[in-house]
């Protein structure tokens, strides 16, 4: 980074709000805000994961029974898609750091495409789950000694994947916003805090899935 660039970042830029002395301060502050938001999100999902693990401990047989009926192939493909989308977005962040807006735009579009395919596959998976009778209640397909624990598993499954999907949809909206900003030139090498902040959020949504993947599809299957 040249001395001239550093100098410019220490002054208020066109998007600097009045409470900040410089562009750089505003950028760093926005990053702090997003990290803190992710901390509160971690506690939000953490509450759910804690109860989930507690019931898995209480009902190991029921949870193992339910895990056998999850769509392992779709879940694995979806994990690969989501990890790849984080890679494409991270490359986009690297691109704007050297000022390549065109590349950022393309990578953001790739990220959106991967996210949309994830959502479509998730929709298919929900359809298959419901079709197979994996809905706790009177028509629940799993019967026998483990059915009570299995029912709890499916409750957590639907709640967690739904909450994750809502977060992913918000993320898709944000990445679309970044793609538009990349195209109309609102983000530059010197001023691209929005790109970094959306990147943090997108990676967090990915991280949540990386916890969900073993909890839904793997634990209990290997034994």
């Amino acid at each position: 980074m040249s001395a001239a660039t550093r100098h410019r970042e220490d002054l208020p830029g066109p998007e600097t709000e009045f409470q900040y002395p410089s562009e750089r301060e505003q950028h760093d502050t926005s990053m702090t805000g997003m990290w803190l938001f992710l901390a509160t999100e971690t506690l939000f999902f953490g509450g759910l994961f804690l109860i989930w693990l507690y019931y898995r401990y209480l009902f190991p047989a029921g949870f193992a029974l339910a895990t056998e009926h999850t769509e392992f192939a779709i879940g694995t493909v979806n994990s690969a898609l989501l990890i790849t989308s984080s890679v494409t977005y991270a490359c986009g962040v690297a691109a704007i750091r050297v000022g390549d807006r065109k590349l950022l735009f393309r990578l953001a579009v790739a990220t959106i495409a991967l996210g949309v395919v994830f959502m479509l596959l998730k929709g298919v998976e929900w359809y298959l789950d419901i079709d197979a009778g994996m809905v706790p209640g009177p028509g629940f397909a799993l019967r026998g000694p483990g059915s009570q624990g299995a029912a709890l598993f499916w409750i957590f499954y639907y709640l967690a994947t739904l909450l994750h999907a809502i977060h992913l949809l918000i993320g898709l909206g944000l990445v679309t916003w970044i793609a538009l900003r990349a195209r109309n030139g609102t983000v530059t090498r010197e001023s691209h805090a929005s790109v970094e902040i959306v990147g943090l959020y997108w990676s967090f949504v990915d991280m949540v899935w990386l916890v969900l993947y073993p909890m839904i599809y793997l634990a209990g299957r290997a034994g």
């Binding site: 509160t40 939000f44 953490g46 509450g47 759910l48 109860i51 706790p136 209640g137 409750i155 709640l159």
Partner: peptide, 21 residues
């Protein structure tokens, strides 16, 4: 606060869908 949010979501779900958390 987010932990309370999750607990209240589970209560609401339990009432609406008659699940057994």
């Amino acid at each position: 606060t987010p932990v309370l949010t999750m607990a209240l979501i589970l209560i609401a779900m339990e009432r609406i869908f008659h699940i057994g958390v």
